[in-house]
Design a protein around this nucleic acid. Sequence first.
DNA 1: GATTTCCTTTGACCTATGTCAAAAAATGAC
DNA 2: GTCATTTTTTGACATAGGTCAAAGGAAATC
Lengths: 185, 185
Amino acid sequence: MSITEFLSSIVPFTQDELNDIQSHFKKELVPKNQILVHQGDICKTLYFMEQGMGRSFYTNENGKEITQWFFGIGKFMTSADSFFQQTPSLYNLEVLVDSVVFSISKEDIDQLFAKYHKMEKLGRLVTTEMLTKIVNKLNAIQFQTAKERYDYMLAEFPQIAYQVPLGHIASYLGMSQETLSRIRK
Amino acid sequence: MSITEFLSSIVPFTQDELNDIQSHFKKELVPKNQILVHQGDICKTLYFMEQGMGRSFYTNENGKEITQWFFGIGKFMTSADSFFQQTPSLYNLEVLVDSVVFSISKEDIDQLFAKYHKMEKLGRLVTTEMLTKIVNKLNAIQFQTAKERYDYMLAEFPQIAYQVPLGHIASYLGMSQETLSRIRK
DNA sequence: GATTTCCTTTGACCTATGTCAAAAAATGAC
DNA sequence: GTCATTTTTTGACATAGGTCAAAGGAAATC
């Protein structure tokens, strides 16, 4: 899914608007395992995942990596806090397979928000959608058994569930890798 | 905190704009324990909590009430999904003490979003803030001990923590009331 | 101010899931 | 194809926090 297709699917931009908006995005090929943002950095770029997948994760006190979110095709990938409030990111952003992303700087997207009311609306709608998804995850984590949480994962990220290391999924779901391995049987 | 103060604190509206916007909100006095929205209803109204506090909660398969969020003074209170996507609410919205709220309908706020770019921006910023808070809760729930989660609660809702029944807080934090009671000692 | 109802605490016991360690399987490098 | 590395599975054991039941306290109602 191209970025213009994505934008148009949410708000009806004119062709001129789309051209202008698109011109602020830069296409990048990112190789597997590359870290786009490091924990502690201020995230200055928003990424749109055209092809591939990524995750956000942090390293806890015991040096263990905890996956916080997965990003599939057609999603914006960023450390939302850090990007929008320009505060140090709690997370690393990592690309999990060779990927194609479109990137845009904070200044540029703020300019687009200011220039186009429609773009601001898109920002609001995308954020609302993210909010809904996080609430769903929260419910899964808070009140479901390990088995049910895995089912939630399969429903939410069907394409990702079978392509990333088990440990990433386990930490995303808030359980140990051993438990997830036992569940999957 | 009045609604106009709140709006102005986020985006610099002119006095005329504020007057117009405010005219779409209706002040309501809501008595303690009133349910504003029932689980399963489509949430047609957004509430701004001027005075008082509320919560969202649902009743699970075993008939137990699970608190999902608390709403303090100066916050918007709604079942975000239900209101913005006009889908059945997963939650009840309940006022916990006698409260003063400003309410606005979905149609009216959509009109305001459409009329004022600044209002759309406000919507985006408020949603982003909510997103950040939910992510914080998620982290607390997912990776912290019961004790640490209670500390998170005290930090996030200091004024609320001592004013609502223990059971509401326990379910909000994803633990049993007995566990919370033991922790508090 | 007595009664009823609701809320909180305490105790005893149980279980889902964590941790640690090692084996087995899969993947990647040469 | 072989060796090295990474990932997944398995087993044994530990524990945080759950459940159930009952007793105390607080607070609303008459």
